[in-house]
Design a protein around this nucleic acid. Structure first.
Length: 734
DNA sequence: GACCTGCTGCGGTCTG
């Protein structure tokens, strides 16, 4: 094996033999560099590559080599994954190798039998593949044995690190790593497997807060083949222009049909992924594409995949993608964005602008993964036919510009950096309750030290922590015994002792949709279906026959028509840099090189509107009797500008790039005066800014927070006060 | 007009 390198020689002899028998001719570049870095287990490492290829092996081959050096066979590695499906995948891949090495591998999540779990607990060694929620449960319920369980811990490997950063689950994960290390009584090497992010320093700071300098970052430079890219422009009739002659037909049905027709021609006979950005659209496109297959008398090639479909139906789609003897295209939401293995995909289709550049990049990484193949992205930019009542957003062709801006940033290699600061008080409440369960009680100063001073909640000061504790005490969630030990209160104990406690994020209650004996999936309670409704679900149309409130079940039978149910849920936020790039595109003259002729026409129309309204020079303008603000700042800043104006008595709507002053006839002079006043005053305190704001309680334990901490936690995660103020000053400071 | 993810322990009964 002459081509194998010095890194190869560092691996255990049994692993080298396994690699040899698997027929690998060489190690990939990321593996070469990761092996010596990880082998010593004396520092943290991030392995970053755009595609999943070889990342797991890059981490696990040196990890296993290290475990084999252990004489008493008690060494342990934690592998933490965001998805159960990924754990099952990895288990299947690791098992054959680990069996030859006599290293036990333990999958551990909600679907794993308790007998397998108790076998691990008897002899906690080898590789434990686990979700953050299951790890939370272990610490919470087996706190006293945690030091024994983790005594042999050598590594904590976090897969899909980027998927955790910035979210409630990410904060929880950071806290869990800290608590596991404390239980083990030693600093443990943390290994992060990540997509390449623009600023890897932020990922390093996430993996080891306050000591990012010690994290070695290995970014794969061999990013594979080239990228083929085309965005097609599509002009469709505005829904209001259509004859409303078919009550069962969903709005935009015609647009979906015409785009589905084009997709069908370009995608049939190959494997592809289509991302239309919402579950409702997944249903519509899959339905139309399946009808086209049937009309041609060919077997179906189009399958739906989203989070509300039952596990069984999603697995059917995954099996179709993996199958070697037929072609399959999945129409999906970001359920197929993360790393479960779905085989080779020829082309990725993005319908409408993606939620973020990072997401577009991740989606694109799903195609062209075979050597010599290029990644192919086909985009559809959909705009409405202009009519007398078209709004400014349509006239500006806003979606096309957003799509083009994100694409051009992608081509430059830029992706949104994660938003790492933020108080995350909801998750702090969970971690505090869980830590108390783990230790059977806890003194307040120690809890503060573990979670905030030495832990991940370092944006929370001592005074805030104390006021949080006293509020939790007043709400009977916490209590203090005579010696000052913190314990669960009358309201806190049942919270912690329920299985829903372990997840850091909240989820809406749902109804199951059942046809005969088969569960098709679920819809949120808020979407309230009633008997006689016609729905489109799992790419078929149904009539609702019965709604059983008690068992939260909706019974359906096949019907000829229907429209998708409403799945309300928030989406991501557009970054400042994307809006900045949109502005640049409006002011530019070139065709970008990735737009088809129809899209180039839309580009020209948007630029024409931009010039006609003189938007480049005037961020504040009057259109059809309404005052509008176009700041070209991201959603966090726009939301903050809106809040600041609301303080001055305006009611402001925030849709995409455009802020709308809702008061009909509001004079520009009035708005301008208010903005001038904001520019010349210091930033108002958050309690004033959010005094009248509703719906701030969005995260799981927000209801346990006192008002002022809730407001500050919300602002730290969702607003950009300094940035918004800077922008207003740059325009209105005199 | 709008994504995704996850979940214990215990006591009961039945089967090999």
């Amino acid at each position: 094996m002459a081509t194998l390198s010095s890194s190869f020689d560092l691996l255990d002899e049994r692993i080298r033999r396994w690699i040899w028998s698997a027929g690998w001719s060489e190690l990939r570049e990321a593996q070469e560099r990761a092996i010596p870095a990880i082998l010593t287990a004396d520092h943290d490492v991030i392995v970053a590559a755009a595609t999943a290829a070889g990342k797991t092996e890059a981490a696990m081959l040196p990890v296993l080599t290290n475990l084999l050096k252990d004489d008493d066979g008690l060494a342990l590695t934690l592998y933490i994954s965001p998805l159960k499906a990924l754990i099952n995948d990895q288990f299947g891949r690791l098992l054959p190798l680990c069996e030859t090495l006599d290293i036990p591998v333990w999958p551990w999540h909600g679907d794993i039998s308790s007998s397998s779990k108790s076998r691990f607990l008897k002899r906690p060694s080898g590789v434990l593949l686990i979700t953050p929620e299951s790890l939370e449960a272990i610490l919470c319920n087996r706190g006293f044995s945690a030091p024994t369980l983790f005594a042999g811990l050598r590594y904590i490997v976090v897969d899909e690190l980027h998927a955790f950063i910035g979210s409630e689950r990410g904060k929880q994960l950071q806290s869990l790593m800290q608590r596991v290390e404390l239980a083990a009584g030693a600093r443990v090497a943390r290994i992060g497997l990540s997509a390449t992010l623009g600023d890897m320093r932020l990922a390093a700071d996430f993996l080891r807060p306050r000591a990012a300098d010690g994290v070695e970052t290995i970014v794969s430079t061999s990013e594979g083949g080239d990228l083929k890219l085309l965005i097609k422009g599509y002009v469709v009739l505005a829904p209001k222009d259509r004859e409303a002659d078919d009550a069962d037909e969903h709005p935009e049905a015609e647009a979906v049909r015409s785009i589905a027709g084009h997709m069908f021609k370009t995608l049939k006979g190959s494997n592809n992924l289509v991302f239309p950005n919402s579950r409702g659209k997944v249903e519509q496109y899959t339905y139309e594409l399946q009808k086209l297959c049937a009309a041609e008398g060919m077997p179906n090639e189009f399958w739906p995949h989203h989070g509300s479909l039952s596990r069984e139906l999603r697995e059917e789609t995954e099996a179709a993608l993996k199958s070697k003897d037929r072609h399959a295209t999945a129409v999906c939401t970001n359920t197929l964005e993360l790393g479960i293995d779905i085989g080779a995909v020829k082309c990725v289709v993005q319908v409408g602008p993606p939620p973020s550049v990072a997401s577009l990049r991740q989606r694109l990484g799903r195609s062209g993964r075979r050597p010599g193949e290029s990644s192919i992205l086909r985009g559809y930019a959909i705009e409405q036919e202009i009519h007398s009542e078209s709004d400014l957003s349509s006239l500006l062709r806003e979606d096309l510009f957003e799509f083009a801006a994100m694409t051009s940033l992608l081509l430059e290699g830029w992706v949104e950096p994660p938003r790492p600061r933020g108080m995350h008080l909801s998750t702090l409440v969970q971690q505090l309750l869980s830590l108390i369960a783990q230790r059977g009680g806890m003194m307040a100063p120690e809890a503060y030290r573990i979670l905030c001073e030495a832990g991940p909640f370092d944006a929370v000061g001592k005074a805030d922590f104390v006021s949080l504790l006293s509020h939790l005490g007043a709400k009977d969630i916490l209590m203090q015994d005579a010696s000052g030990v913190l314990l669960h209160g009358a309201k806190g104990a049942p919270l912690v002792n329920h299985y829903t406690f372990y997840a850091a994020f909240s989820a809406e209650e749902e109804f199951r949709i059942i046809s005969g004996t088969r569960t098709l999936g679920s819809v949120p309670v808020s979407s309230a279906l009633s008997v006689g409704d016609f729905i489109l679900f799992a790419a078929r149309t149904w009539r609702v026959d019965e709604v059983d409130e008690a068992s939260k079940s909706i019974y359906v039978t096949q019907h000829q028509a229907g429209r998708p149910p409403r799945f309300s849920n928030g989406a991501g936020m557009v970054h400042d840099k994307v809006r900045e790039r949109m502005k640049k595109l409006y002011e530019g003259t070139d065709d970008t090189g990735f737009l088809d002729p129809a899209a180039v026409r839309l580009l020209a129309e948007g630029r024409d509107t931009y010039r006609r309204y003189d938007i480049g020079r005037r961020p504040l303008l009057h259109v059809d009797g309404r005052a509008l603000i176009l700041s070209w700042q991201g959603d966090a800043r726009n939301a903050t500008i809106a809040m600041l104006l609301r303080m001055k008595g305006f009611s402001v709507g925030c849709y995409g790039a455009i802020l709308t002053i809702e008061q009909a006839g509001a004079e520009l002079a009035e708005v301008s005066k208010a903005l001038q006043a904001i520019a010349s005053m210091p930033l108002p305190p958050i309690e004033d800014l959010l005094a009248n704001a509703l719906n701030l309680r969005q995260e799981k334990w927000d209801s346990a927070l006192p008002e002022n901490l809730l407001q500050r936690s919300f602002a730290s995660q969702k607003l950009d006060l300094a940035g918004a103020h800077e922008w207003i000053k740059s325009q209105w400071y005199t």
